[in-house]
């Protein structure tokens, strides 16, 4: 029997990192929980949207649990999670 992954995650909850959890879904949605939400919440969302767009990944729900990760980290963790889920291949 082929086991099909429906959820994958990448990253850690250490300072300056984030955990990105991605699930297959009907439409794209992004939920963010961040220790710097008031100051960077919008920025994190924008980076997430752009990254998914660049990867051409559309039908996923994304949950980002952030502990002050910079843009490059968010982008990388999203990419890894997508690869692990099987919705993106290098």
């Amino acid at each position: 029997m082929i086991y099909i992954k429906t959820i994958a995650s990448a990253g850690t909850y250490e300072s300056n990192d984030c955990i990105v959890t991605i699930k297959k879904a009907d439409t794209l949605s992004i939920e963010i929980e961040s220790v710097v939400f008031e100051q960077f919440g919008n920025q994190i969302k924008a980076v997430a949207l752009k990254t998914l767009d660049d990867l051409n990944v559309k039908n996923v729900s994304v949950f980002i649990k952030d502990k002050g990760a910079l843009d490059y980290t968010i982008m990388a963790r999203i990419k890894t999670a997508c690869k692990r889920l099987g919705v993106y291949h290098d």
Partner: peptide, 15 residues
């Protein structure tokens, strides 16, 4: 190791 590689490449490209 897959995550580390993605992180390194992203770091070199953007930081």
């Amino acid at each position: 190791k897959d995550a580390a590689k993605d992180l390194l490449v992203s770091f070199l490209n953007h930081f």
